[in-house]
Amino acid sequence: MQETWRWYGEADPITLEHVRQTGAAGVVTALHDIPDGTAWPAEDIARRRAMVEAAGLTWSVCESIPMEQCVKRGDGDAPKAIARWKDTLANLGRAGIPVVCYNFMPVVDWTRTDLRWRTHRGTGLALRFEMTDFVAYDVFILRRPQAADDYDPAIVARAELRAGAMDEEEKRLLERNIIAGLPGGALVQTRASITALLDSFKGLDAAAMQGNLIAFLKEVVPVAEEYGVLLGIHPDDPPFSLFGLPRVVSTPRDVRNILAAVDSPHNGITLCAGSYGSRADNDVAAMAAEFAPRINFAHLRNVTVEADGSFFEDDHLDGGADMVAVIEALLREERRRAAVGDRRPAIPFRPDHGHLLGDDIGKKTNPGYSYIGRMKGLGELRGVARAIGRQLDREGAGA
């Protein structure tokens, strides 16, 4: 497994020199400064790769080529948007970038209600998704029509009390946390713009959206094959409907449908243990074992899920996912690939969504992407991988 680190480019508070100090060899990055709807020029990709390599690192994964909303809707603008995506993919392949991670989440990307939640064990500040707060926003602040019908009446009743107790500043903070978009230059939404986007998805059910995803894959996987790029679709985060919208990369069944649609090692998944683990009925270790041959990238983080569906980012080796079993599945898959002559590179992984710790609490950081918390997680994951690797080596020597 190759240790990597997500880096948001020159605007990232964490420098490439700091990345080197973590011990990671690879960088996960993208051209965040290029607006959506624009294919990435080859010269800009080459410039980013040269910058990474000048720091003694490798651009191991592109995360992510922006996915325009029209592609998810499958509307009349989708063909041109897919063509732009293919142009970017080809340029990345020509530049030797081996893996591309992407997602198919409608309107909002990863979503949390609290970006600075104080953990019960006092292990810093964590990201949290609080179900009552989210329902309070959707039903009583955003006031999405018929939103209450999408939730259990008991949660709606609690959410009404919660919304009524919030002052305007609390409401604004909750809204910013939910719809601010991704760090690194992604579009920051407003209440009006998110309402318009939600309206643009009216009438689209899960079957139609899955069909749009499969149509996209049939267009882009041949390009990935031609240019030697491994694709890894990231799961929905969280892996259940938000704002009444369908989400189609949330369960083992979803993954099976995606992989069967285009049966190619270039059509693979990003195993995000935290995203899949945010749904209590997903067994992340079992998914790692089942889908190992098509795992092209891994995000290793952990969450603890609560009875009402709320969850928080836990320490990397705690939470609901058996991280030791997940890492063992990935290491066994690498050995299987080597034994059958599969020339795919070592599976890149990165520590994800570390806690805010120490003096990082007072520094400028991208939410979930502080330095100390992720470095702590990387050290823990590295230790687990080293120990399991030694055990597998002993097994192989004794065979």
Rank of each mutant, 00 (worst) to 15 (best):
Q189N: 15
P222S: 00
R344P: 00
E68P: 10
N91F: 02
Q69L: 10
L356I: 08
A42Y: 06
A346E: 11
P235M: 03
T132P: 02
R162A: 05
R144D: 00
A11V: 05
D12F: 11
G74N: 04
P13V: 02
L161D: 12
R144V: 02
F243P: 01
A224T: 01
F243R: 01
G164A: 10
P246L: 08
G368F: 11
A30R: 11
V108M: 10
V249Y: 02
S60R: 07
V249R: 01
W40H: 11
L142Q: 07
S64I: 04
T29R: 13
L127F: 12
G383F: 13
T29C: 15
N257R: 14
W117Y: 14
E334A: 13
R332P: 09
P183G: 12
A224C: 01
F311M: 00
T365D: 07
I178D: 05
I194V: 15
I82N: 02
T304R: 12
M375L: 15
A286T: 12
S200C: 08
E63H: 12
D360Q: 07
P145E: 07
P106A: 10
E313S: 04
K363H: 12
D352G: 03
R144Y: 00
L142C: 08
A215Y: 10
A78G: 06
G377D: 14
Y276S: 09
Q391R: 11
T365E: 13
